[in-house]
């Protein structure tokens, strides 16, 4: 029993991390007053470009007769996926901030675009590689569990806390940094003001467009890294058609569940991660697998009902979220 629980915990962390990254990116975006529903699209873009980055790096090095470095390969995947997500968010930002297009429509369009982008290039690169695209063992190793001296060897705790791949710790550090950023830093305070009440922030001398662009683009980049996690860790460096599908939307739901708090996001991601992989660890006789697959989505609906009944001014969506700012509008 104890071992099942600890395996469930470990699996939940692994499954929850891409959700956490997606949610963190979206929290940063929404704090600036932009509701970017393109999380899934940006994750897809990050997933394929991260994988392709590592793959082409390996190909190039092998061709010239050298041996690819796992760490370098991982760094390339990280950077490229961040840039791809940020690029998606840049399109979104240009449309909504500069051209003042409707945020919901633009976000949904980005999701459709990113999904197509990911699947198209995934299949295309796979065809050229002769069937499917997969990274080599070196890169795979760079994304496998870490062995931290001393810490990883602590009984029980070592397995529960110190034996994950580096992206898990990366996501948690981002969550901690974001918490500090929103609550302690001056720029974070200004960003919150932009998301809550852009007219007020504008009158206080804050450059609205710059804050919105920066937050949205960095947020999109973090979503892209979440997508890269799916293709590099979840599917072990092999492109699987539609590998991100559904995860982007769960990340959006997580934002609400976490009440726009990055720290809470860590725990909520763990719960959702657990729900997505429960069927492999908790066996209820007679319950079909499809019912298990429903859990995260049922939980999302329940969360939405509970959060909309709850009345709180502070732990709520930034007030201007979803509306574009135009100074001369009255």
């Amino acid at each position: 029993m104890a071992s099942t629980l600890s395996s469930l915990f470990v699996a939940a962390v692994l499954a929850g991390t891409p959700l956490l990254l997606g949610a963190l990116g979206e929290i940063l975006t929404e704090k600036s007053g932009n509701m970017n529903l393109g999380v899934e699209g940006m994750m897809f873009m990050g997933a394929i470009t991260g994988l392709a980055g590592s793959y082409y790096y390996e190909q190039a090095v092998t061709k010239s007769g050298g041996a690819p470095s796992g760490i370098l390969s991982a760094v390339i995947a990280l950077l490229v996926s961040f840039l791809a997500g940020a690029f998606g968010a840049l399109i979104y930002s240009f449309l909504t901030i500069s051209l003042r297009a409707n945020q919901n429509v633009t976000g949904l369009t980005l999701t459709i675009f990113g999904t197509g982008f990911g699947n198209f290039f995934g299949e295309y690169i796979g065809l050229k590689a002769g069937g499917y695209v997969a990274v080599s063992g070196t890169t795979k190793a760079a994304f496998s569990s870490l062995r931290i001296p001393v810490l990883s060897d602590i009984p029980v705790l070592g397995k529960l806390l110190f034996q994950y791949n580096w992206l898990v710790y990366f996501a948690i550090i981002i969550a901690i940094l974001m918490t500090w950023f929103f609550n302690k830093s001056r720029t974070g305070l200004n960003l919150r003001a932009v998301g809550e009440d852009p007219a007020t922030a504008d009158a206080a001398g804050i450059n609205i467009a710059r804050y919105k662009y920066t937050a949205t683009i960095v947020g999109g980049g973090i979503c892209g890294i979440g997508g890269m996690y799916m293709s590099m860790v979840t599917t072990s460096g092999v492109w699987v058609h539609g590998c991100v599908t559904g995860y982007g939307w769960l990340a959006v739901a997580l934002v609400i569940f976490a009440t726009w708090s990055p720290a809470k996001g860590v725990f909520v991601a763990l719960v959702f991660g657990g729900l997505t992989i429960m069927r492999m660890y908790v066996n209820i006789p007679g319950l079909p697998a499809q019912i298990y697959d429903m859990f995260p989505y049922v939980a999302t609906i329940i969360v939405l009902i509970v959060t909309s009944m709850r009345q709180s001014k502070e732990h709520a969506q930034p007030k201007s979220c979803g509306r574009n700012y135009f100074r001369e509008e009255r």
Binding site: K184, S185, R186, T187, L189, N190, R192, A193, E196, D197, A199, T200, A201, A203, A204, G205, I206, K313, E314, K319
Partner: peptide, 23 residues
Amino acid sequence: FKLVDVLTAAENIVLGLDGKTTV
């Protein structure tokens, strides 16, 4: 009034001002 509801009086007062990284 141009004030952000979820911030405190003091936070509203320093909004947009230059200063140290942290408040």
